[in-house]
């Protein structure tokens, strides 16, 4: 039996994307059109619907820039500007990427260490685990300015304070996933190792670490997306000169909506490609372990 067209996934995804773009254009017409009408009325000029439609997609500081304007700006700032210039989006992306990756690496290491501690020490689990969970109910992003001030007073500046915030957001999924993963070791394997008189480090490296790998990668996908959010948000209150967050902030100060949207587009592309990279690694790892794709 053949699947009907509207139940094929490429068709559904394609129509969703087209629908989103169509709604976007209509909304842009509506929002920018209202703005234009207001200007016309203020100047007491008469206007026609065709004028509005023509101009709504070419406003300099639109309420909602239509997709092609955003893409134009994106292409201009990515490909037609030197990457070393502050006007280049590549420059800002690299700044954000650095603190994201550093924070992600730190968060992963910290998350794994905490998980190992929790799995091996009952007291650590009962005293620390509730706080690991509670730490995520605290809107940590609020602490971002403080971390920057405190580290700045110790003359630590640059990407490190931002990476600390990215780390804070990304360690949690890793800890939770790893605790689950390290505990998921097959009981029979563990007992077999014990009959071999395996030391606890052998037990860890030969059984637990192996069984935790799939869990680790599932968590890493969440962690890297959170690290990016952390890095972007950390750039907001710190008054930093570079980075996608700084780009968003300066865009909102000067009403440069096209700039905001193109920074958002870049952030989405960055986020999606980071997650994609991790999932490629995951696939490779799973294949090595003999899973069928």
């Amino acid at each position: 039996m053949q699947t009907p067209l509207h139940h094929r996934s490429w068709f559904a995804v394609l129509s969703t994307v087209i629908a989103v773009i169509a709604i976007w254009y209509l909304a842009a017409l509506w929002l920018n059109g209202q703005q234009l009408i207001k200007t016309y009325e203020r100047k007491n000029q008469s206007w026609q619907l065709t004028d509005i439609v023509q101009q709504a997609y070419a406003v300099k500081r639109p309420m909602l820039p239509p997709p092609h304007q955003v893409v134009q700006e994106w292409v201009k700032t990515v490909f037609q500007t030197k990457p070393s210039s502050k006007r280049s989006l590549v420059f800002h992306t690299i700044v954000t990427l650095q603190s994201t990756l550093l924070g992600f690496a730190l968060g992963t290491v910290l998350g794994i260490l905490i998980a190992v501690g929790i799995v091996h020490n009952r007291t650590l689990e009962s005293s620390f685990m509730p706080w690991v969970i509670a730490s995520q109910t605290i809107p940590i992003l609020a602490i971002a300015p403080i971390i920057v001030v405190v580290l700045g007073a110790m003359s630590i500046t640059g990407i490190f304070p931002k990476a600390v915030i990215a780390m804070y957001l990304s360690f949690f999924p890793v800890t939770i996933g790893m605790v689950k993963g390290l505990r998921s070791a097959d009981r029979l394997h563990m007992e077999l190792m014990q009959t071999y008189f395996a030391s606890s480090s052998q037990l860890f490296w030969k059984v637990r670490w192996y069984s935790a790998q799939p869990y680790l990668f599932a968590s890493l996908k969440i962690a890297i997306a959170s690290a990016l959010v952390g890095a972007i948000v950390a750039e907001l209150p710190t008054g930093s000169q570079g980075g996608l967050g700084a780009r968003l902030l300066s865009g909102s100060y000067y009403g440069q909506t096209v700039q905001i949207w193109s920074a958002l587009l870049m952030a989405s592309l960055l986020g999606a490609s980071l997650v994609f990279c991790v999932s490629v690694l995951e696939k490779l790892m799973l294949r090595k372990r003999g899973y069928q794709a």
Binding site: A225, L228, V233, I260
Partner: peptide
């Protein structure tokens, strides 16, 4: 879920 949605904050403030 992979993109930093908080980034839409300036746009929402504008709207």
């Amino acid at each position: 879920s992979a993109i930093p949605i908080v980034g839409i904050a300036p746009i929402m403030v504008m709207w």
